[in-house]
Design a protein around this nucleic acid. Structure first.
Lengths: 209, 209
DNA sequence: TACAACATACCAACTAGTCGGTATGTTGTA
DNA sequence: TACAACATACCGACTAGTTGGTATGTTGTA
């Protein structure tokens, strides 16, 4: 889905190294504050390679968002929480999983898509669209489970799977911002606890609170 | 509170015009993508004036966060929703108010503090601290009402006013990111609806859903 | 031998920040 | 009350360095 735009072969090694460098550096410093030279240095590649693979810096930023979609979606697809038979259990286990992976340095668990969307939405359409696609696609994946849960257990008027999926992402993205302010993952764990409590009450399901 | 750091007189007119320009431009383009020249142009001021009032660009960014705290806190302090006698009604009316003011261009209702905190947390300690102070302070204000509501109506183990106040900000900040992706305020309205539903269930209060 | 995948050398534009200068207060004191 | 001494607010040309981007190689391999 996210790779549909990047028709070119993606053969080279330099390309991938540049995309990984972009994700690491942009999460730490933001997009504008990260220079092409810096990206090349971290990737161990020269400027010629950079502009061989990407038309300009914005194109790298957008391609990195697609790269982020690919790597993170495979992370979530292969995770254990998908094994649960019950859709609501699956969602709750997804929250557990997100809780677990929010450790270490702040820049290591925050979201490339959210960061670059926040910063670049006004200056680069390509980055904005690719970054939003990343978040919206992930929400849509969550929405499948949530729609099944709604069909099975019912939900108040107006509550849809997609709406809950997007809200989940919103709460997480916002918690990442707070985590950047505090310098640790505490706000993420807190937000997930509130999110879980909301869902449990919404579906009248008792569980650890 | 937020002005405690800025002991200097703040007399000049150029200073305020630069702070207003910073808030407008950074919300649209981000901090790094906004140049000093651009700020001066929008403020109708020269570079000499800029560096007379601010030691460097980062100092302007941090001062703008304080300025944002001042203007937004007076906006919320003077708003009607504070008139409610019941603390929970006050919080719910706060949500209504936030719902109302989320209109027009995305850059006009999103948060300077959240934007610059997200972007600058790794490159400027001064901006990070001032921006986080802005959000944390606002959360603390909310927490007062929420603590009163908890004292009055009770709440599950581990739910505190501050925790709910921070979670409220997280959901809003995250919704702003989604709004930037979609280009409209719909995600903000959605997030507020979920937030309201959560609070109503948490305090066993029926209300419009 | 043709072409993709890189490397090297370079540039024009822009960047934050400096510096000498002016105009308009304010304040202490004779 | 007059005037020297100083402070504040602001101007705009200048600079050293950085930026994204280009033009022109080289090299491995199909």
């Amino acid at each position: 889905m996210s790779t549909s735009r990047t028709i070119p072969a993606k053969t080279g090694n330099a390309r991938t190294k540049l995309l990984d460098a972009a994700i690491a550096l942009v999460r730490r410093q933001g997009f504008s504050a990260t220079s092409v030279d810096q990206l090349c240095q971290m990737a161990g590649v020269t400027k010629g390679a950079f502009f061989h693979h990407f038309a300009n810096k914005d194109a790298l930023g957008a391609a990195a968002a697609d790269h982020w979609t690919d790597t993170s979606s495979s992370l979530f697809m292969e995770a254990d929480y998908n094994r649960h038979a019950d859709p609501l259990d699956r969602y709750l286990a997804y929250l557990d999983f997100r809780d677990e992976i929010a450790t270490g340095e702040v820049a290591e668990f925050t979201c490339y898509a959210g960061t670059s969307l926040q910063e670049c939405y006004g200056s680069s359409d390509a980055i904005r669209d690719a970054a939003y696609q990343s978040i919206a696609g992930h929400s849509a994946r969550l929405a499948e489970d949530l729609d099944q849960a709604i069909a099975q257990y019912g939900a108040p008027e107006g509550v849809t799977g997609l709406s809950l999926g997007l809200y989940t992402q919103a709460a997480l993205q916002g918690a990442f911002i707070l985590a950047k302010g505090q310098g640790n993952a505490a706000p993420v764990h807190d937000a997930i606890a509130h999110l879980r409590r909301y869902i449990l009450m919404l579906f009248n399901r008792e569980g650890k609170i």
